[in-house]
Design a protein around this nucleic acid. Sequence first.
RNA 1: GGAGAUGUCGCCUAGUCUGGUUUAUGGCGCCCGCCUGCUAAGCGGGUUGAGGUUUUAAGACCUCUCGAGGGUUCAAAUCCCUCCAUCUCCGCCA
Length: 436
Amino acid sequence: MIDPRLLRAEPDLFRDSQLRRGADNSAVDRFLELDRSRRTAQQLFEEVRAQQKQMGKRIGPARGAEKRGELTEGQQAELARWLTEAEELSNRVKAAESEVADLEPQVEAAATEIDNLVDPDAPIGSESDFRTLHEVGKPRDFDSEGFSPKDHLELGEILRAIDTDRAAKVSGSRFFYLTGDGALLELALLNLAMNFATGNGFTPIIPPALVRPPAMAGTGFLGQAEENVYRLEADDLYLVGTAEVPLAAFHSNEILDAEQLPLRYAGFSPCFRREAGSHGRDTRGIIRVHQFDKVEMFSFCNPDEAVAEHERLLSWEQEFLDLLELPYRVIDVATGDLGSSAARKYDIEAWIPTQGRYREVTSTSNCTTFQSRRLNIRMRSKSGSPHPLATLNGTLIAMPRVIVALLENHQSADGSVAIPEALRPYLGGRDRLLPK
RNA sequence: GGAGAUGUCGCCUAGUCUGGUUUAUGGCGCCCGCCUGCUAAGCGGGUUGAGGUUUUAAGACCUCUCGAGGGUUCAAAUCCCUCCAUCUCCGCCA
């Protein structure tokens, strides 16, 4: 949700931002017009409502006196007149109220169509117009090592770590079993990630993966992204696509103490994605799946701190990938590819040898005050009234894609896979996964 | 799943049966001021949140807000309906 007062005062900011996203900006003017009508209607309502209340204050005591039989004939007649007048007022109140009630959702709808203001520093353009910020590590030269790399699925089968055939039998396409060392690998990554997070001051959280509609809507997943969300019709619940949803909604309808900020959480949850519209893409292996586990970082912070916090989230993401000894690059996502709630977004893409390219493994977004407005999360400093705060999120680890990157980048010709040093304590001190 | 109880402005609490004379009571906590060698106590005032009108400004005023949403009524914290949450008991269960 955008800031309606800012929009009234400086609509050009929003028109321009929408253009930068390559999005429709007609909602800005639609909002302004509806908002004006709504406020006019609101004022009328408040006026007649005030009259009605005044009348009620006269009728009340008079009725009391009437019951006690203390009214003179003249007062009795006056009361009767008041009641007639009150009835008429009541009708006018109802009419005015229903006009407001009519306009309200329209204003709301227009506001919802307006995306978050983009950060002026974000590169302008569509998906391919990203800016590369860093490249870290070098892709391995398998040619010079004298063998061609196997892809993660082949390795996963050699190690008996990944089983997609049986997953297809049981659940369908885009599902997987992690077996043996595969399962242990995920648990090791989880523990490494959680220790890393808590070491950096995050509170570990295991949130619910089923949420009610307001949580889903508040985080912005019921707009364009809706087709990718699983919904449980019978119970009116959604399966979350990321822990961002329950983490963001954790403090919904709360006013947080500004002194306590930033509040940082690391949430571990399963993630469910329908992957509608991606038929035929990444059908092999576990790069694109319907269900996976992820540790997500989430921060509630002062809007003044949001840009710095975003940089911090990014550097934690990088640090974590460094621990896993993976080559990657960091990109500054272009305005057209931000999604409605992010003002700026950095993706980290790990090198995938068998694809000869970088693929997204983590992503961090600065949502400024956009989400907190929808979720009604505010902060209060010692003096002064509550204000919306900023929310930011960033992937610490998305299991399948990191497993893909680990297997492919650290493989040997015999199909064994080297375990990065940081991970060894979590795998019983082993330094390799061996074919089974 | 069955039976019952509860939900009031940070916390506790009055008000709900019997609708109006309530700007929603009082206490605790917190904030400001007064008073007092200091502290404590005492005294006075303030203290839900949202939207709006107006003003150079401080402010003033209005409307909404008693778990949420509907309804009845001239008028709803109070009556009716639906939903949500919590608690107690019973049953079932990893």
